[in-house]
Every structure is written in C-alpha cells, then in structure tokens.
Simulated scan of single mutants.
Amino acid sequence: MYASFVILAAALVAGTHGYSSGAPPSVCTDMVPKHPVPAQSTPPPYTITTSTKVVKAGTPMEVVISGKSAKDTIRGLLLQARQGDKPVGTFTIAPNDPFAQLLNCGQPGNAVTHKKHDEKFDKQTVAFTWTPPAGFNDEIKFRATIALNGAVFWVGVESGPVKVTN
C-alpha cells in the first residue's frame, strides 16, 4: 500500500514538471497541457490586452498578459494569435529572454511558450511583439493557456478581437 502511494506521488510530481521547458508542438491545436489534472473551470485571473484593436498587415503590435493581482503569476504559457482555430502571424521575443521562447505550431515563431526557469523568473506580466502576415485581412484573437503552476492552469484565455487590415 505504501509503495503504491509513493509511486503515485512520484508520478504526480513528474507530471506537474513534465513541460517545465515549454509546451511541446503536440499541444499546438488544443492548447491543453498533458498535466495529470484537469484545467481550471473558474474564470482566469489573467487578462490579455493588445496595444491596438486595428492593425495593418505586416505592422508589429504588442500583446500583454497580466495577472489580476500580485499572486497571479505566470509559471507556464502557450500563446498564439488565431484566425478561428488557425495560428497566424509571427511573434518576436528578446534573444536572452529568461522566461519565453518561440514555438513552431506549423510555422516558425507563430507561438510563444515558456522556458525552463527558476520560480524567481515567474512573471505577473509578460509582453510580446506580434506581427500579422503581409496581405492578411481578417479578425484574430490572441488565445493562451496560462499556468500558475503544474496543477493550476487555464486553457482558452482570450483577448478581445483585433482587426487586421490590408
């Protein structure tokens, strides 16, 4: 009995740290981490805001994810700009960013995820630059999975719509 408990506890700990180095490409579509617990069903304590509600194709804009209070930090992240269910555009991050890295969800740089990092690098607010593709003319929303920790995370956090004009 005790051995079963130890094995279960070890599996849960391993599972909560399974993607400590960032989301794998296998979760690009549903954005659901394969943690051993379900996503939270409560409203997320995070917001996604954008520097503009209308942007010209090919023109960079800023996307900010913020916790609503100081305790609402971000340990893990997967962020995409989506036209319906399709990731579009390209993100840019600083080369030495201690928190984030680009992810290829069908195209290089069309998603951002977290890097393996110490808890001291958890953020209450993160900001990224996103550029819509040249010639693009449609509405997008930024969609994210945001993890407070390995056992507490929200899937499907969305921004308001952003109109991309040609």
Rank of each mutant, 00 (worst) to 15 (best):
T73R: 12
P108G: 01
A39G: 09
A100L: 15
A144P: 07
Y19K: 09
S41Q: 15
V54F: 03
I74V: 12
T59D: 14
D122A: 06
G89N: 08
G106N: 06
A39K: 10
V88A: 00
L79Y: 06
M31W: 00
E119Y: 01
T29G: 01
P38K: 02
P95I: 14
T129P: 03
A23C: 05
T129N: 04
D30C: 03
F128I: 15
D138W: 09
A127C: 04
F91Y: 13
G67K: 03
G18C: 13
G106A: 06
D30A: 06
N149Q: 07
S66A: 12
D85M: 10
F142D: 01
S21H: 12
K163H: 08
E158T: 15
K116Y: 02
Y2I: 15
A127M: 11
G18R: 11
V126E: 09
A9R: 14
T129H: 03
D97F: 00
W154N: 07
A10F: 08
T165G: 03
K120I: 15
M1G: 13
V27P: 00
Q124W: 05
M61W: 01
V55L: 08
A57R: 10
N166F: 13
G106K: 07
A57Q: 11
L102H: 08
G58L: 11
H117N: 13
T113Y: 03
N137A: 15
V55H: 06
A127I: 08
P43T: 12
P161N: 06
S51I: 13
S69N: 12
W154I: 15
P98V: 14
L77Y: 05
T52Q: 10
N96G: 04
Q80R: 01
Q124I: 10
G160C: 02
P43H: 07
K68M: 11
T50V: 08
V88P: 01
I93T: 09
V64I: 14
K120C: 04
F99D: 14
K34P: 11
V164K: 06
P161C: 02
H35Q: 08
D30E: 10
M61P: 02
A39H: 07
